[in-house]
């Protein structure tokens, strides 16, 4: 474990917590007897969260952590895997099933056919992998899928007029975690002999590059202290 990977995991955890906070806000808001102004805005405007991206991430974790009960690495590793699995599936459940949260989900805008991401990633994992076994192919699939899982969310943000802070912070933290992982891979490459994993590295690089334009607009909005807006 090195500082870059720990920072990356904490950033990833933060992104999940921000999303859960946002869902809690929507839930508690609608529970009020009087429609406060914030509540009214929250419930009327779409949450800006892409269910498609959340479903892709649940699939990423489900295929990434197949070995959670077979290969014990550390308590930290197991706990974090359980947190990511539990949070990603519960977020999908909230947006799909929860009577209040689902109202803030704008399915007409979140139209990305994520099936078009799943299939190519699966085919690619069957062709390019480190070992042609069931677990290894699915693990490789989860790396390819995670690299593109943010696309439905980024496209939804372009369509969303006013991106609220929590959603913007969620996407930022999600992008930052993989950028920190790249630093972790560089660190491990120079400190551990034989630590070479091209598939992981290239997938992580592609994933981070997909956030490049979002990072640009995110930092610009911070610098100019204006509302985050992605060009359509």
């Amino acid at each position: 474990m090195n500082i870059f990977r720990l920072a990356g995991d904490m950033t990833h955890l933060m992104s999940v917590l921000v999303l859960l906070l946002k869902i809690h806000t929507i839930k508690s808001c609608a529970g009020k007897s009087y429609p406060c102004s914030l509540c009214f805005i929250l419930l009327e405007s779409s949450s800006g969260i892409s269910l498609k991206t959340q479903e892709l991430y649940a699939l990423v974790f489900a295929t990434r952590y197949l070995d959670i009960f077979t290969d014990f690495i550390s308590v930290y590793n197991t706990i974090m895997k359980l947190i990511f699995l539990g949070s990603s599936f519960s977020i999908v459940w909230y947006i799909r099933r929860h009577k209040i949260v689902r109202r803030s989900y704008d399915k007409d805008q979140d139209t990305f056919r994520h099936f078009f991401l799943v299939l190519p990633c699966l085919l690619l994992a069957l062709i390019i992998n480190e070992k042609f076994t069931f677990k290894e192919v699915l693990w490789t699939f989860s790396l390819y899928l995670e690299a593109v899982a943010i696309l439905p969310q980024l496209i939804l943000l372009q369509r969303t007029r006013n991106i609220d802070n929590l959603t913007g912070q969620y996407v930022f933290l999600l992008g930052a975690y993989r950028a920190l992982y790249i630093l972790n891979w560089i660190y491990r490459y120079f400190t551990e002999p034989h630590y070479v994993h091209w598939i992981t590295w290239i997938s992580g690089l592609v994933q981070t590059l997909l956030y490049a334009d979002f990072f640009y607009y995110y930092f610009s909005s911070l610098k100019n202290n204006v509302k985050l807006k992605l060009p359509a």
């Binding site: 290969d71 480190e130 992982y181």
Partner: peptide
């Protein structure tokens, strides 16, 4: 090289 080392990450 054991590719298990890649599996110790999340």
């Amino acid at each position: 090289p054991s590719n298990e080392s890649a599996k110790d990450e999340l």
